[in-house]
Simulated scan of single mutants.
Amino acid sequence: METLVEGAVEEALRDGRGEAVRLYVAACAERMAPLFVGLRAGVPGREADLDLYVESVSGLWLAHKPLADAAERVRWLKRFPELQPDEEGITGVADTYAFFAALCLRYALLAHNSGNADGCGSFGGTDPGGR
């Protein structure tokens, strides 16, 4: 069942450009940040990933213009273990939440860069992991 609010948000994102879309995706990524940071803090070798995540979320709030290095950040995100193909799939609860947090940041960066919520689906084909 579609709610009144859901339709209004969908319409605003579809019709909106630039700053409104950038603020929306910044808020989405911010909400997912505690999952990624909380689940990956203290994991050896993930310090740079944590820094990238936190710095990216911070940069997303600069909604008046695209991030100059958004494409590079997306390339780095693709290297995150959470977004790597795995024949067995993701089975652990912590890994599942970290995957969705990384995926959210990926789409937030793409939408922020384009200023268009529709544009983020055009990268990486049909697989939301960009594989």
Rank of each mutant, 00 (worst) to 15 (best):
M1C: 13
T3K: 05
T3R: 10
T3G: 09
T3W: 00
E6G: 14
G7P: 15
A8C: 03
A8W: 12
A8K: 09
V9A: 06
V9E: 11
E10V: 12
E11K: 01
E11I: 04
A12N: 09
L13Y: 12
L13G: 08
R14K: 14
D15S: 13
D15L: 12
D15Y: 07
G18V: 10
G18L: 08
E19V: 04
A20K: 06
V21K: 01
V21H: 03
R22N: 12
L23H: 02
L23D: 04
L23C: 08
A26C: 09
A26T: 13
A26N: 02
A27K: 00
A29Q: 07
R31K: 09
R31N: 07
M32Q: 13
L35R: 06
L35I: 03
V37I: 13
G38F: 00
G38R: 07
G38N: 00
L39H: 10
R40G: 04
R40C: 00
R40W: 01
R40L: 02
A41I: 12
V43W: 04
V43C: 12
P44G: 03
G45A: 14
R46M: 04
E47M: 08
E47L: 02
E47W: 06
E47R: 04
A48L: 14
D49V: 00
L50H: 09
L50T: 10
L52G: 07
V54D: 15
E55Q: 11
S56F: 07
S58W: 12
G59R: 01
L60N: 06
W61E: 14
W61M: 12
L62W: 08
A63V: 05
L67S: 05
D69C: 06
D69Y: 04
A70S: 13
E72T: 07
R73E: 11
R75M: 11
R75E: 13
R75N: 07
W76Y: 11
K78Y: 10
K78M: 05
R79N: 10
F80H: 13
F80K: 05
P81E: 15
E82K: 08
E82W: 11
L83I: 06
P85Y: 08
P85T: 01
E87G: 15
E87R: 14
E88R: 08
V93Y: 03
A94P: 06
D95T: 01
T96Q: 00
A98E: 04
A98M: 08
F99H: 10
F100T: 02
F100V: 01
A101V: 01
A101C: 07
A102R: 03
L103H: 02
L103P: 01
C104F: 06
L105N: 06
L105I: 05
L105A: 00
R106C: 09
R106P: 09
A108G: 02
L109I: 02
L109S: 03
L110N: 04
A111D: 13
H112I: 07
N113R: 11
G115C: 05
G115T: 10
A117L: 05
A117P: 00
A117F: 12
G119I: 03
S122E: 15
S122M: 14
S122R: 15
F123R: 07
F123T: 10
F123P: 02
G124N: 03
D127Y: 01
D127V: 09
D127C: 11
G129R: 05
G129H: 00
G130K: 00
G130M: 05
R131Y: 07
